[in-house]
Amino acid sequence: MAKYWLVFKLSLLQLLEYRLDLFLGTFRYAASIMLLALLWMAVAKESTAFIDTRYLLQYYVAAAILYGLSNFHLDEVEEDIRLGYISKYLVKPISPFLFYFINSGTKTFAEVVIKAFVMIPIAALLGVSFGTSLANLFIFFCFMPVIFFGMFSLYLVATSLAFWFTSVDSIRLSIMFVFRFLSGIFIPILFMPEWFQYISRWLPFTPVAFTPIQVLLNKLDFSQSLLAFGVLLFWSLLFFALQQFLWRKATHSYEATGI
């Protein structure tokens, strides 16, 4: 376990190495999502239908914080596969999955924490508070690691294809964009057509953003939260199983020379 603790510490140091880059990387999406909040405020001003602007602000602050858990890049893993650096993990007593998982997880969660520390006080200054119950806060925190686990497994599935197709960044990015639009990060699912709201309950998209935000905003009761958590867990395990299957198949036939 000590070696993985070291990976965690090294990943954290790596993240803090270039602070301006960290700052920009952390807040570019937060700024983008807050612009979306302003867009919907402008819509609310002109709309004849009632749009709860307070809810919108709360929603987008939470979305900005959660965003990083489902939007991260595994370019380094793809590069390791393409250039053959993956060999060093295959011949040493370290699991590549755990190495990459801890490396990406540390960076992702550090960014989420930094964003939360900055955005929640700013939101409070603007008069936005969440008023989340302790039970819902606990459920919300339970969602976070599973969201990352599921999304990491899914992105690693796409990245594993690099063993066969060499360059697969476009596939990974396409998956990421589909999740961005359908998970509710850009548009609250409540604004989507009813048929989509219905089927989205069973798809892997909404548990990644919309549902945990609803939990945080006390909009779901315990049974609904539990059901959504179950759906998220199911999809995450499915992605993980697929990832393990592909990885095993790939490394089984993998050959490297002269690295």
Binding site: E17, D21, F23, R28, S32, L35, L39
Partner: peptide
């Protein structure tokens, strides 16, 4: 030394 996020920030904001 590392400034990639500057240009990525421009790209992200360009969505608007």
């Amino acid at each position: 030394t590392k400034s990639s996020q500057t240009i990525r920030a421009l790209q992200t904001l360009a969505d608007h």
